[in-house]
Amino acid sequence: MPAARRVAVAGAAVGGTAALASGGGSLAAAAYFARKVLTPDARRPDDVVVRAADAHSVTLDTTAETVVPGRYGLWLEEGEGHARVGEVLELDAASGTVRRELLGVDRGVLGPGPARWNQYFHGSPPDESLGLATENVTYEGELGAMPAWVVAPDGVTTSRWAVLVHGRGARREEAIRAMPPLLAEGWTCLVPTYRNDEGVPEGPDRRYALGLSEWRDVEAAMAYAVDRGATELMLVGWSMGGAIVLQVLDRSDLSPMVGRVLLDAPVVDWGDVLAHHARQHHIPRPVGSLARVMMRHRVGHRLVGVHEGVDLALTDWVRRADELDHPLTIIHSADDEFVPFGPSLALAQARPDLVTFHEWRLARHCKEWNTEPDRWESIVREFASG
């Protein structure tokens, strides 16, 4: 098709959707929404306030996060410091504060001031957080050298490797929680990075592709594991890491080596996630629809700032359920405020022959381990055994 004709066709598609949006939104609003979804955060802002601390407890402003049971971390001093907190000791409705158990200050000074809630619980690499012998390695990705951690059971590399894929805008520390049960079952743990992570090569457009390009970086990590002697691979993904894993299973030549897949609060359908956030932010439905068209069609790429199209239909694994052929274990909370658990449940219902679903309550996004660590680790150990 001639270039002029391609532009005309794509322009007609965008224009048609823009006409639908004209009463409740605009092209600029749709482009802004799409960019927010696809652009890595330049910085991670503080989201909680420390009011007081002593040797055994910390008092915080009450938020939707700070009152949930479980164990969590606090980034201090714009991420330079870190503390770990435990269960709620006291709720003071009059002052709007919550006092929680203080489990330790790993670095920095814990005192009154801003902080950032951290579901990873661990705020340092595995050698510092858990005393695990950790190799800092690099593997060659499509865009250059990518850093990774390798942690082996008792320091001895095995032939079974688990590749642990963190979520959108997250750090590798997110994966440390999974290491103890996996190591106990004899799996060598590889925690890779992918494009647009902090301190690694950026994508050509400096945008996320929601798994549609990041999967190639994870595939490169899998190839590294195979080069190191892996004969069986396990893929573990959190949030967008789950979306990346699902693309790996679909597209990678190495997918036949994957025998087990574990997803925690995964994005099973990006269209559902975007619709959820559009509703939360009172974005008219036509504007959200236009944003999806702009991500996908070439004529919208310049406005959205993407190098290659992001077709959300390719990320809808409820619709594509019949295409799956790997057994999946999914852990997802019904109270996930960021990635609704509906598509995870729907996928399990669509493919009961392949998908084992573990439903959580209370836990917010990617915080299932935090609220019930013993249950979470028991599921992972059973999944990884044998």
Rank of each mutant, 00 (worst) to 15 (best):
L212Y: 04
W215T: 13
V226N: 11
E185S: 10
G155S: 03
L235Q: 10
G167H: 04
A170S: 09
I244K: 02
T188Q: 11
L212M: 09
M179G: 04
G186K: 14
G229Y: 15
G242M: 10
L233C: 14
E219P: 06
E214S: 06
S159N: 11
A175P: 14
M240K: 07
L246H: 03
G155E: 07
I176N: 03
V191D: 04
P180D: 12
P204H: 05
R206C: 00
N196I: 01
L190V: 15
T157I: 13
L190M: 13
P201M: 08
A152H: 03
V191A: 14
D227A: 13
W149H: 09
G229F: 12
A148L: 08
E174A: 07
A170N: 09
L183A: 08
L246P: 05
A148S: 11
R195F: 04
E202F: 08
P180K: 00
R206K: 14
G155A: 07
A225K: 13
G229W: 14
R172H: 00
V156Y: 10
D154P: 01
G241S: 05
V245I: 08
A175Q: 09
W149R: 02
R168M: 11
A170H: 06
D197A: 07
S213K: 00
W215V: 03
A184P: 12
E174I: 05
Y194L: 11
V150D: 04
L183T: 05
I176P: 00
M222D: 07
